[in-house]
Amino acid sequence: MRTTSRWSRGRAPRTAALAGLAALACLAGSAAAEPQGLRVVYRADGLPAGPDDARWQELPQTQVELSPQIIVPPKGGGGVASLSLRAAHDGERIAFLLAWRDPTPNREVGVASFRDAAALGFPALASATAPSPFMGDADHPVNIWQWSAELEAEARGEGSFATRYPHTPGVWYFPQDASVTRQVRAWRGVAPVMEFVAHGYGTLRPRPVRNVLASGRWADGTWKVVMRRALETGDPEDAVFRPSEPQNLIAAVWEGSAGDVNGRKSVTLTWIPVQLDSTVVADGDR
């Protein structure tokens, strides 16, 4: 089994900005360990399917440390300290498995109930300078994929809205109300994953595309979420993945039972280097 030790420091992209952020990570009280890279293994025989696919276990795991978000209010999070990442590509598509400990699955969104969620972010544009790892900056958009447990439940037909807010017999709604709700849901998203572009904190913009597929499963105190997308979509706001070329990611996890939502989240403080296996090399490696 391959391990992340293959990732030498020299292969991870380095910028002055990253050094500064490592210092910030120190200030934040988090371990200022060098970001460990994530290797995206080339699997010519196809990608693991759902989160329970046993083939994920054959892939090297990268454990990423998460810290509370302390840059902008509302600050918070920190309930999830560590996120496990595995990834593979088949020359056409890339898939990530995110796994983290969470004793309480939260699949419901109510006035004061919050759902579990996780997100990955990638620089949307190839650039010599690393964007800010805090969801990008004005010149460097970040492409974000966010999976959430309530959208997962809804997509599976297990949403709790109808039971939590039952339709009282005799209460009549205007006929156009249902179509308004459908419209809102259409741009808010009904798939378990939503795609965004951001230029820094507070600028998250949902994108009306469905390029990413996702599915999540909670069992034995652990969420496992798979997100999958084509390596290249041709969409200028989508991150590009190319075999042999370095990419980077940031990650965030929301713990619903702790009231995590928006800025209240556990986040990576630096970019995690991502390296896709070459389709040729990895093939011979096999």
């Binding site: 109510g110 006035v111 809205f161 939590r164 807010y165 939502v261």
Partner: peptide
Amino acid sequence: YRECVKACPYGKPMFRPNH
């Protein structure tokens, strides 16, 4: 995000769960 629901001291922004 319900930050407004929490912040308004008069309880006037309201969360619509299905939207």
